[in-house]
């Protein structure tokens, strides 16, 4: 029983991770995407059906919308909650002292010479 339970959890978590990946892809691309395009974008590691299932789940949660104006079967991200979050974030950043500064942010500031070095790294691909 315990084994089944933990496997169930693991599967749920990885479904959650896939949802994040599909949602991130839709937000990163500035136009609506079909399941096939999403599948190609996430380097084809996912089965078409899986992408479809994840999109349906995201749709049920109200996180993505079917693109009514454009192509059939294309999806775009729902903006409402994301805009509210952005507002709350800007408000927090402006108010100071910055409550987010205490968090583990992905990246922090750069000096001009660091910036140059990083540009070279990206251009050369010689990481």
């Amino acid at each position: 029983m315990a084994g089944t339970g933990s496997r169930g959890r693991a599967e749920r978590r990885s479904a959650g991770e896939l949802e994040s990946e599909v949602l991130a892809t839709l937000w990163a691309t500035e136009r609506p995407l079909t399941p096939a395009e999403i599948q190609a974008e996430i380097d084809g590691a996912l089965a078409y059906n899986t992408v479809h299932t994840i999109l349906k789940r995201l749709y049920d949660k109200g996180l993505v919308l079917r693109d009514a104006a454009g192509r059939r079967g294309a999806y775009r991200p729902a903006k409402n909650a994301a805009e509210l979050t952005a507002e709350a974030m800007h408000e927090a950043l402006d108010r100071g002292p910055d409550p987010i500064a205490a968090l583990q942010q992905f990246v922090t500031g750069l000096s001009p010479e660091e910036e140059r070095a990083l540009r070279e790294l990206l251009a050369g691909g010689g990481a």
């Binding site: 994040s20 937000w27 996180l63 805009e83 979050t85 800007h90 968090l103 583990q104 992905f106």
Partner: peptide
């Protein structure tokens, strides 16, 4: 407050913002 309005069982919260930012909550 940042999580408000997002379904409870969703891992990724996107903020529609032009400020490039990422962090764990």
């Amino acid at each position: 407050r940042l999580c408000a309005g997002h379904p409870a069982d969703t891992e990724l919260i996107v903020a529609a913002s032009e400020v490039p930012q990422a962090f764990a909550i």
